[in-house]
Amino acid sequence: MLEDEKNLIKKAKDGESHAFGLLYDWYLPKIYRFVLLKVSHREEAEDITHQVFLKAWTGIADYNHRGFPFGSWLYRIARNSVIDHYRSSGRVGTEISLESAGIELPDSENKDSKIDSKLQLEVIMQSIPRLKEVEQDVLLMRFVDDMPHEEVANVIGKSVGATKLIQHRAIRNLKDILKHDRR
């Protein structure tokens, strides 16, 4: 969570653009990668992310702090924006490479293992949009952004127990997709 976030939110609610700018700087990478891994298209991810922050800035006067970080609210807006995007474009995910996503793997002595990891990552990245929306959301929030179950549950509007169950199913389904693709 961003330091002094409550104070920044209060200032942003009063219309201080500098305060909102700091919230933007902190949350932009998180929201961007969440959207990118869901839509698998860089330009579309940039447009949707832009819309998310624009909606947040124009609607921040109505934002009420409920004990969760400001990011929870942004993730909720992002989820809805991605769904709206699918509805309007009718497109559901395309293939994206690690390079175009801006992912660089750490240097390894073993070249073969690096290639293996790269292939595995690309396969996983391309499999994410094939999961159910809520399964994608749970996996991305839990394992990319390390969000606790409680916060994820708040974003998706389910109980903590239900969120854990969705996570379990999501991993199982992803394993099935990967196994099926290997055949």
Binding site: L28, P29, Y32, R33, L36, L37, E46, T49, A101, G102, I103, E104, L105, S117, Q120, L121, I124, M125, L139, L140, F143, V144, D145, I171, L174, K175
Partner: peptide, 15 residues
């Protein structure tokens, strides 16, 4: 391995 792979996506950042 799946969870480890997901953590690698932390490297994604916008232009």
């Amino acid at each position: 391995k799946i969870i480890k792979a997901f953590s690698q996506f932390k490297g994604i950042s916008p232009d």
